[in-house]
Amino acid sequence: MSGHFITFEGIDGSGKSTQAKLLAARLQADGHEVVLTREPGGSVGAEEIRALVLEGNPDRWSAETEILLFTAARRDHLERTILPAVAAGKIVICDRFADSTRMYQGLSRGDLRGIVDQLHSLMIGREPDLTVLIDMDPATGLARAKSRQTAEERFEDFGQALQEQMRKGFLDLSNEFSDRFCVIDGADDMDRVSNAVYAAVAHHIEAFS
Rank of each mutant, 00 (worst) to 15 (best):
A72R: 03
A72L: 06
R75A: 15
R75I: 05
H77K: 04
R80K: 14
T81H: 09
V86I: 15
V86E: 13
V86L: 12
A87Q: 15
G89Q: 10
K90C: 10
K90M: 07
K90L: 02
I91R: 05
I91N: 06
V92W: 06
V92T: 10
I93K: 11
R96Q: 08
F97S: 08
F97I: 01
A98E: 14
S100W: 01
T101R: 00
Y104E: 07
Y104M: 04
Q105A: 00
G106D: 10
L112M: 11
R113L: 15
I115L: 15
D117T: 12
Q118A: 15
Q118R: 13
Q118D: 14
H120C: 08
S121I: 12
S121L: 11
I124D: 10
I124M: 05
I124T: 08
G125R: 08
E127Y: 12
V132M: 15
V132G: 14
V132S: 15
L133D: 09
I134A: 09
I134R: 01
I134E: 11
I134V: 11
D135C: 03
M136P: 03
D137N: 14
P138K: 00
A139F: 06
T140M: 12
L142N: 07
A143Y: 06
R144I: 02
K146V: 09
S147V: 04
R148Y: 01
Q149I: 06
A151M: 05
E152G: 09
E153D: 15
E156R: 00
E156A: 09
G159H: 02
Q160I: 15
